[in-house]
Amino acid sequence: MVRFKNRWILVEFIPVSQGCAQLGKTSLNSGSSLDGKAVWAALRQSIINNFGDAGWGAVGLSLTVKYFSPTTNICIIRVARDQHNIAWAALTLLTAIDGTRYIPNVVHVSGTIKHAQLAGISHNREVIARYQALSKNPAGYEDAYDIYLETTEREIAALQD
């Protein structure tokens, strides 16, 4: 019996405003209207535009957005192992989602969901630490960032293949 082999792509969508990326300049609740369905639809359109119907035919059945955090714009995408290069290239060529400009930053590519989860959790910790440093609160101060970090760790750890 042959099993279906996947690649898991962890990507961060960095919003662009007036020509410069807002790396860490937004708050956690930036009010972005981005969601998993919009990411999937934009990725589908990028594959069709850049690789045609043959590219979408190769990738379309296996492409799914397994996790999306609208707060930190972190996304875990599952795609078949043989076609992950097409999905990765389409992500790189993606410029806008629902009319809002984003810079897609592929953080990690993995063969298992477990390693994608671990990379997602560690990346979320880095993003939360960046937000906490910008807020200039004392180190022992517990705030919404800590609560958010705990909930996202549970959400990401609960993902199933």
Rank of each mutant, 00 (worst) to 15 (best):
V2T: 05
R7Y: 14
I9C: 07
V11L: 10
I14L: 09
V16C: 03
V16D: 04
V16Y: 02
V16P: 00
S17N: 00
S17A: 08
S17F: 12
G19Q: 05
A21L: 14
A21R: 14
L23R: 05
K25W: 01
T26N: 09
S27A: 11
L28E: 02
S33F: 15
D35N: 15
A38C: 06
A41T: 09
L43V: 04
L43K: 03
R44W: 10
Q45M: 12
Q45D: 09
S46Q: 09
N49C: 11
N50C: 07
F51E: 08
G52T: 11
G52S: 06
D53K: 14
W56S: 01
A58W: 00
A58N: 00
G60Q: 10
L61R: 13
L61M: 11
S62T: 14
K66P: 01
S69L: 13
P70D: 08
P70C: 10
T72Y: 05
N73F: 10
N73C: 15
I74K: 06
I74P: 02
C75A: 08
C75Q: 03
R78W: 10
V79E: 02
A80C: 10
R81H: 09
Q83G: 00
Q83K: 04
Q83C: 13
N85V: 13
A87D: 02
A87P: 05
A87T: 11
W88P: 09
W88N: 03
A89P: 00
A89R: 11
L91N: 04
T92K: 09
L94T: 07
L94S: 06
T95V: 12
A96Y: 09
D98A: 14
D98P: 00
G99E: 06
T100L: 08
Y102V: 04
Y102T: 01
I103L: 13
I103V: 05
N105G: 02
V106I: 13
V107D: 00
H108T: 11
H108V: 00
H108R: 08
H108P: 06
V109N: 05
G111W: 04
T112R: 09
I113F: 01
I113D: 10
K114M: 01
H115T: 11
A116R: 06
G120L: 05
I121T: 10
S122Y: 00
S122F: 01
H123N: 12
H123W: 09
V127Y: 11
V127S: 06
R130N: 12
R130V: 01
Y131W: 15
Q132T: 08
Q132F: 15
Q132N: 05
Q132G: 13
L134Y: 12
K136S: 12
K136G: 03
A139Q: 15
Y141M: 14
Y141C: 15
A144S: 06
A144D: 13
A144G: 02
Y148G: 03
L149M: 13
E150Q: 15
T151S: 15
T151C: 12
E153V: 12
E155H: 14
I156W: 07
I156S: 00
L159N: 00
Q160G: 03
D161M: 11
D161G: 01
